[in-house]
Computed example of a mutant assay.
Amino acid sequence: MLFPDYRPRRMRRNETLRRMMRETTLSVDDLILPLFAIEGKGVKNPIDAMPGNFQLSVDNLVKTAKQAFDLGIPAIILFGIPSKKDALGTQAYAKDGIVQRAVKTIKDKLPDLVVITDVCLCEYTDHGHCGFIDGQTVDNDATLDLLAKAALSHAKAGADMVAPSDMMDGRVAEIRATLDENDFSQIPIMSYAAKYCSSFYGPFREAAQSAPQFGDRRSYQMDPANAREAIREATMDVEEGADIIMVKPALPYLDIICRIRDEVDLPVAAYNVSGEFSMIKAAEKMGWIDGQKVMMETLTSIKRAGAEMILTYFAMEAAALINA
């Protein structure tokens, strides 16, 4: 029986050879840890749908952020859960808002940790939508000023980067202009450029208490069936001044990550979202999979698709495994 001259299995014979030939390497430097800030002191509320994740008061946020930093994780992204909500989401841009206070405290204690803030209104509005409501519709243009005010308040608090996740048209340009006009031209924008209207966000809405009180978000988040539109969204955000382009979710949209990586010459991030995390944790609990191996395979696939940065609730668990 004749064989080809090249036998790929030669390079898979042992772990050392496999390591030498590995095309994609996952590093702790690739990871960003999402954290949820809530009012109070000594608060550590378990998130039932996301095992090992918590709503944390600022004092406990600092402790968790330090644990992450000690593992080598370079950055966190903060989401806020205010004590009161209203139609305009005013706590999103309040000087003493929960995220603003969390940023100040974390940067004071951990100045070298990169603190990114999610810029959106859904956690802060009583209706749960990501912008100003006119009747039953989110008013795109009326929302832009509120988002820019939130981003500016985060920058003033000491945030290293802002990440608008609302999917309003033109919000990157509005935020960029507002930051520049207020002497924050050094603050980068990580844009949720291709954020799909996904069913994988379910556990997050429990964590952030941000489920819409009527309707859904299909009029502003992307249709899961569309790919070319994601390229248009990413290209628009690049033109408006984004510094990093994000795809969310990650696993059902690996093709989108790959296509944007080919089209855009900026860094690409991907959000390994709550539903992706929780499914693995649930299957692991049932004994159906090896949770650690599936976690690492999942994160590696996101990196292989083209993401330089991965926002993931696995960040600390993965970092500990990488370090070990």
Rank of each mutant, 00 (worst) to 15 (best):
G128I: 02
F132T: 12
V103F: 01
G131H: 08
A155N: 06
A142G: 09
I116Y: 07
L110K: 05
Y124P: 04
G128E: 07
E123N: 07
L121I: 07
H129D: 04
D108I: 01
A142N: 08
G135Q: 06
I106L: 05
T125M: 03
L144P: 03
I133S: 01
I133R: 01
D134E: 15
D134Q: 15
T137R: 13
N140V: 08
T117Q: 01
V115M: 03
N140I: 12
F132N: 04
C122Y: 10
D145I: 11
H129Y: 04
D126N: 15
L113H: 07
L146Y: 14
P111W: 12
Y124K: 03
T105F: 00
H154T: 06
G135L: 10
L113F: 05
G128M: 01
D145T: 14
N140W: 13
A142P: 03
C120W: 01
D108E: 15
S153F: 04
L144Q: 04
D145P: 00
A148Y: 04
T117P: 00
T143Y: 02
A151Y: 11
D145Y: 03
D145C: 01
K156Q: 15
P111F: 12
H129S: 08
V103A: 01
A157M: 06
A148L: 05
L110W: 02
L152Q: 06
H127K: 10
L146T: 03
V114F: 01
V138A: 10
N140K: 13
I133W: 00
T137S: 13
K104I: 11
D118Y: 02
I106E: 04
K149H: 03
D139E: 14
T125Q: 04
H129P: 08
